[in-house]
Design a protein around this nucleic acid. Structure first.
Lengths: 294, 294
DNA sequence: GGACGACCATAACAAAATGTCATGACCATA
DNA sequence: TATGGTCATGACATTTTGTTATGGTCGTCC
């Protein structure tokens, strides 16, 4: 008869840290998640493992007993895992990632990848131009474009979805409500995406609003940074700005999202077999992609 | 760094039994479930733990290493759990269960209860008449009726839903298609549910079909048994016949289910506080009840 | 002594992990 | 070559786990 193992692990951490809240931080989950896991375990055993009182918790005698006995078991599992995972490590998977995608999507999700596949190391370079697998030592690339490149297989990750964005402060101050209001604020451009504003204005049939003034940045990341700081209005790739839109540091304008026939693609050489590591990465990539349409 | 623990446990069992299929039986899950858990673990480590070949599997060297190291850890967890759970056991929870409910619903689900709450023992008696908590030493009862009994709290489990049932063979042989065909086959009655047929026929406005011939059994369980064997047509409580209807040993007739203002209720004395064990049982009961409407 | 902050619990809901069923491929043996 | 045993895989369902929002309790600070 085994107890539920994940709750047992949560218990082990909690007992060690003497606090639900700290255990939650340590495990990178919320405090209620810990609370429930402990409850599950307490139901299983039929008695409390912690005494809850003012300012914190204490192990009950049974909890202490349990902690004493299982802690070494977890240490053993941890140690052998560490060793075996290290033995499984081989050459890193070489990725070449479109810069904005790396900055705005990939990097914050890497811990999740390492947790699921700790034996795969990544070597990540970034660039904007399409990859040349003949010249560059790269296993898998993520790039932006129309999806048709010679000599490569590709798989669509998500389409480009454009809409003007700015800081909530700017929207209020400059009173941005209709498209004409764009005349009153600087447009922020990105070098590598010169046509974004034109494409979007064309779709709205308001190309007349396009002007060459505005400010131009060498990377979309900087453009978005500037927009966040209230410098002007940027043409935002909605999928890459989830965080900013969620926490309110950017807001969308004018309710006119435009989906273009361009997209982010995973790309690999047609003649080489995709290494197993790369297939794992691709599988992970796609699983993390589920919050996006297509 | 810990590996996913449930897959690790599945691995431990599989390595011990040298077979995915046998591990699945041992764990009471399907073979594909085991296959997937092992895959998860193999992805985590970055190498195969089993070599698959004709007629079965063998541990790889890494798998063997892992097995050797973690097995004792699981043995430790198992042992201490066993001991602590035993120490948590107290007086059994005394249940008194309506006979048919016990036979047709509860008993097959008991293993699930013991797995979740191994420290709670049950003492189950069964009877049909309403419980008298003054005279009987019972913590919690499950009984059938209108839901209003003096001096008790009650909670509805599921309503009574009636429809004639018989074996598929009888339906074919006696060519049962319309209600009038009932004249040609014996009606099966249960002592404690004498009015079931009358109630149902009344709802169909065909009381004329009621006759006192038929066969009568001292318990619904026996009535259903007889129906399964093709003896006649019984008035079935659909919720309690899920298994029979699913595996086809009984079929419903005439598409006229009748929901009555009677139901199965969990019931406990109003003046006594419901013991913790009983609250756990009730919570479990309700969670297992989710496949039913109300 | 009332506002505040630290702590854990709970409800309603969302997301992720796990399991199932149906099916396929492979091989051994009859 | 049919049969029965093995494990794998796709599509889907269920269950478990986690999150957010909120509430209660208690100690501390001004």
């Amino acid at each position: 008869m085994l107890p539920p193992l994940n709750p047992l692990h949560v218990f082990e951490v909690t007992a060690r840290l003497q606090s639900f809240t700290r255990a939650a931080e340590d495990l990178r989950v919320s405090q209620p998640a810990v609370s429930r896991q402990i409850q599950t375990l307490e139901n299983f055993f039929g008695f409390r493992l912690f005494e809850r009182d003012k300012l914190g918790i204490r192990l009950t005698p049974e909890g202490e007993e349990l902690q004493r006995q299982i802690s070494p078991a977890f240490r053993v599992i941890e140690t052998v895992t560490q060793r075996l995972v290290a033995s499984g490590k081989s050459e890193p998977l070489r990725l070449r990632v479109y810069t904005t995608f790396a900055a705005k999507w990939l990097i914050e999700r890497l811990p999740s990848f390492y947790a699921a596949y700790p034996s795969i190391r990544l070597s990540i370079s970034n660039a904007v131009a399409p990859v040349d697998f003949e010249k560059e030592k790269v296993d898998l690339a993520i790039q932006f474009g129309g999806g048709k490149w010679p000599g490569v297989e590709s798989e669509l990750l998500f389409r480009d979805l454009l809409q003007p964005v700015c800081s909530p402060t700017l929207r209020r101050k400059a009173n941005l409500h209709s498209i004409d209001d764009l005349k009153r604020v600087p447009m922020l451009h990105s070098h590598y995406r010169r046509t974004d504003w034109a494409d979007w204005l064309m779709a709205c049939d308001r190309l007349d609003l396009l002007n060459d003034s505005g400010i131009s940045f060498p990377s979309s990341v900087l453009t978005y940074q500037a927009a966040t700081e209230g410098v002007g209005v940027a043409m935002g790739q909605l999928h890459l700005l989830r965080n900013e839109l969620r926490d309110g540091s950017l807001v969308t304008l004018f309710e006119q999202p435009l989906e273009r026939p361009l997209a982010h693609y995973a790309v690999w050489p047609k003649n080489r077999a995709l290494p197993k590591k790369a297939r794992s990465f691709l599988a992970w990539l796609k699983s993390r992609m589920s919050d996006f349409q297509r």
